[in-house]
């Protein structure tokens, strides 16, 4: 009578299906920002352009975000096995890496801003800050979700059998990660080669 996976038409959990449906639409969201960025990549209005990027620094934070996907999937794996203590540990590790990534982005933006890449400087600046910034906003939401997951499992609101909740948050987290896989290549690395 309820939304349990095996009593649904397709035998899938509603919430998981819903998350996948939502993620499908997110590609269109990031794609639009990305096309604006690609269109404006040389429209710097005499301000700083892509030469401002600090590839070694961004590589490190990209690596951190990539590895957070590992801890996320380990958190889900622990939850699946009912090991809530270890699950919480991995969740916290994931959130921590997410925050490191966010800190890196704040630092990066601050440096760029000091070097003259103001949002109002050029279409290139606007589109870069929006593309990277909205990805950052997604990471921030993910961190909030993870912290929520952590605290709710601490108070016993999320129980060993409810691994689908960790899985859904994980799906979101991995999605944000693969978006960054694309952005890191398209926004940072390929333009640097083109120069």
């Amino acid at each position: 009578m309820t939304a349990v996976a095996h009593s649904t038409t397709m035998g899938l959990d509603n919430r998981k299906l819903g998350m996948w449906v939502f993620l499908a639409s997110e590609f269109l969201f990031f794609g639009a920002f990305m096309s604006a960025y690609l269109l404006y990549i040389d429209t710097t209005n005499r301000g700083p352009g892509i030469e401002i990027f600090d590839i070694p620094f961004t590589s490190v934070s990209s690596f951190v975000l990539l590895m957070s996907s590992l801890t996320m999937v380990l958190a889900h794996n622990s939850h699946l096995r009912g090991d809530m203590r270890r699950m919480r540990l991995w969740v916290l590790a994931t959130a921590g890496q997410g925050m490191v990534f966010l800190g890196g982005q704040v630092y990066e933006f601050t440096v760029f801003f000091r070097e003259g890449l103001d949002l109002t400087q050029s279409p290139f600046a606007s589109s870069f800050y929006f593309l990277a910034g909205f990805h950052g906003a997604h990471v921030a939401i993910g961190v909030l979700l993870l912290l929520g997951l952590y605290s709710l499992s601490l108070t016993g609101k999320i129980k060993p059998g409810q691994d689908v909740k960790t899985e859904i948050i994980g799906l979101y987290w991995h999605f944000v990660d693969i978006i960054w896989v694309i952005l890191f290549t398209v926004v940072y690395l390929i333009p640097e080669l083109r120069v």
């Binding site: 969201f29 639009a32 920002f33 604006a36 269109l39 404006y40 429209t43 710097t44 209005n45 949002l119 109002t120 400087q121 050029s122 279409p123 600046a125 606007s126 589109s127 929006f130 909205f134």
Partner: peptide, 24 residues
């Protein structure tokens, strides 16, 4: 996305659609 860009152009002086700075 279009609305975000428009709104930041209108309120926060972003340059997405401003021909003066090369926007299209």
């Amino acid at each position: 996305v279009a609305l975000f860009m428009l709104q930041f152009d209108a309120v926060f002086d972003a340059q997405f659609f401003q021909p003066a700075s090369g926007g299209d």
